[in-house]
Simulated scan of single mutants.
Amino acid sequence: MSCSRRRFIVGIGVLAVGSTLAEKLLARTMNVNGIRYGMIHDESRCIGCTACMDACREVNQVPVGVSRLEIIRSEPIGQFPDVKYRFFRHSCQHCDDAPCVHVCPTGASFIDAASGIVDVNPDLCVGCQYCIAACPYRVRFIHPVSKTADKCDFCRKTNLRQGKQPACVLSCPTKALTFGNLDDPHSDISRLLQQKTTYRYKIALGTRPKMYRVPFKYGETSQ
């Protein structure tokens, strides 16, 4: 997905870059029954192929016209022939302190106690769109068929239920995505957080997102 530099900067907002001790400690708080799933998107590995988007749509039967996951491409960085692009994953952040959950009048938006995943119960959703308005990441939408709120759920009702990794993770050809239990110090994601410099999107809002990112290593990563 191509976009102008202005749209790209406005879309990603202000980024908090750095792998501090506080950041790493925060990755293992808010324990929910011993499992709290999160994800790392390695921007230095992502090539913008959108295989993750296609897999998400197929596995979760996402209708045309809406998307649970988008990969946003920056304008070219550098001069021809040495040109690079930065790719930004736009999807639910699965916040530990999720505004969408707080504003839902029916309890349809919730944090799953068994996994820490932020999800939506379509049987309770009345389509009021309060959660869409409250989400600072702008990743929710109304499903055109069910008329209820929808978004990424880390494939909780599809692949995870079958004991598989999320569809986006399995489909990534460059292994740019790592998924696992943030509360398990021996998990791949916990070890990677200890090894890599990461940031979280709009962390200043206090939402405590469980989506981490390894920053793109060429050019600027914040404005």
Rank of each mutant, 00 (worst) to 15 (best):
F88D: 12
V59I: 13
S91H: 02
I117F: 07
V59P: 02
V59D: 13
S67K: 07
T106Y: 11
I117W: 07
S67R: 11
D96E: 08
P81W: 12
V62R: 00
I111Y: 00
R86D: 15
S109P: 01
I111K: 13
Y85A: 00
N60R: 03
V59L: 09
P81M: 10
R73Q: 15
P76E: 03
S74G: 03
F110K: 15
H94K: 06
P76H: 03
D82R: 12
V103P: 14
V59M: 10
C95Y: 05
D97A: 14
D119A: 14
A114F: 06
P63E: 01
C100I: 07
E70D: 14
E58C: 06
Q93W: 05
S115F: 10
K84H: 12
F110P: 02
Q61D: 15
F87C: 05
C100N: 13
S109Y: 03
F110N: 08
S115K: 02
V83D: 05
Q79E: 15
V64M: 04
I72A: 04
Y85D: 00
R68D: 13
E58K: 15
F87P: 08
E75I: 14
L69C: 06
V103K: 09
H90E: 03
S91K: 09
E75C: 08
V83C: 01
V66D: 00
L69W: 10
V83E: 11
G116F: 01
D112K: 06
V62W: 00
Q61A: 13
V101H: 05
Q93S: 05
V120E: 08
F80R: 10
G78P: 09
E75A: 11
C104W: 07
R89V: 13
E70G: 06
C104R: 12
R89E: 12
Q79F: 14
P105T: 12
F110G: 08
H102R: 15
R89F: 03
F80A: 13
I71G: 02
S74F: 08
V64T: 07
F88Q: 03
Y85R: 04
A108L: 11
I71D: 01
V83Y: 02
P105I: 05
F80D: 09
A113N: 01
G116Q: 05
N121V: 02
H102A: 15
G78N: 10
S115G: 02
